[in-house]
């Protein structure tokens, strides 16, 4: 997603002089197209994420649309108070691009995992949050949201090659994209793990569980009434996210269910505990933390079939 993000940003910046890009010394072999073509609107602020957001706040007050770029955790957690007191408090169009949502930085360990960024950002009503599922959707989202009023947080993945089957880059602000339709349960996924979720849906067909799979990229503002209506149609709902189950997509969906008194059962699939020191590639970690296609499918089967027996 990051290469597509940069490619799209270059195209947007060529026609919109307000766009500038700041990085906190990350993005080597990714940001060069912007750096090379728009050198006078690019700055590496050094390894200083707080100042990066502070500088972006000053730039935005003067009319620029600054994008700040770093790995998810360094883009969201380290400068969090600057984001709150800067662009959010002043309602300024700073765009925070975090790369590597979830455990995409795999062997780099917990310091590089982005597993609570949506949670901390979502507590702030004054920032829009988008989590594209693949590179194609990244482009669509960036083009349709970069000019929004106020600050925006983009949770990006590293992977530019994997395309979520059936998504085809579609995105509509405030709505979920439906990839498959079924009647037994609804699975809502967020971000790049939508690909593992789509694979799980294929496995579930073998278990005779008919699934609607929705990809939700608009996290804040919360999705519209159509999404609420969608939730109300299913007896079982599952959320899938490469994020702690608290604070992110699972919490968002549970809030909508509670606020609207929907009669459904929600199972949140994601990280339930702080990752330990055992390292591995993303597929290994996803399996370890219940986010592989097999683990997602098993959770759905166990929940739906156990409930059927219980009933």
């Amino acid at each position: 997603m990051r290469l597509t993000f940069v490619k799209t940003l270059v195209e947007l910046a060529q026609t919109d002089q307000r766009i500038v890009l700041l990085t906190a010394d990350l993005g080597y072999s990714a940001l060069e197209p912007f750096k090379d073509q728009l050198a006078d609107r690019f700055i590496n602020v050094g390894v200083a994420e707080q100042n990066m957001v502070g500088v972006a706040t000053g730039l935005a007050e003067a009319g620029f649309i600054p994008f700040v770029y770093s790995i998810v955790t360094f883009a969201s957690l380290r400068p969090y108070e600057f984001i709150r007191n800067g662009p959010i408090a002043h309602n300024l169009p700073v765009r925070i691009a975090g790369v590597g949502g979830g455990m995409e930085y795999s062997h780099n360990g917990l310091t590089h995992f982005g597993v609570e960024d949506i949670g901390v950002m979502r507590t702030q009503p004054g920032i829009s949050i988008f989590a594209p599922a693949d590179a194609q959707q990244t482009e669509t989202i960036l083009r349709s949201t970069y000019m929004l009023e106020g600050p925006v947080y983009y949770r990006l993945g590293k992977d530019d090659r994997t395309i979520v089957p059936g998504l085809e880059g579609s995105f509509e602000l405030g709505k979920a994209q439906i990839l498959t339709e079924g009647s037994d349960c609804l699975i809502v996924s967020m971000g790049a793990v939508s690909n593992e979720t789509a694979a799980a849906v294929v496995e579930l067909q073998k278990s005779n569980i008919s699934v609607t799979h929705a990809v939700l990229a608009t996290i804040n503002p919360p999705p519209d009434e159509g999404f609420t209506s969608l939730l109300g149609h299913y007896p079982y709902i599952f959320t899938v996210e490469a994020h702690y189950v608290s604070g992110g997509l699972g919490s968002l969906v549970s809030e909508i269910i509670a606020d609207n008194a929907l009669k459904t059962r929600l199972t949140r699939i994601g990280l339930n505990k702080t990752p330990d020191s055992i390292t591995g590639d993303q597929a290994f970690l996803y399996d370890r933390y219940g986010l592989s296609p097999r683990a997602i499918a098993k959770k759905v089967v166990d929940t739906v079939k156990l409930s059927r027996v219980t009933c």
Partner: peptide, 19 residues
């Protein structure tokens, strides 16, 4: 620029100067 959390004003000022 609103302030109150120490250590933020100079960053805002630096961005305003760069702008």
């Amino acid at each position: 620029f609103g302030t109150g959390s120490l250590g933020q004003g100079l960053s805002f000022a630096t961005g305003a100067a760069l702008a």
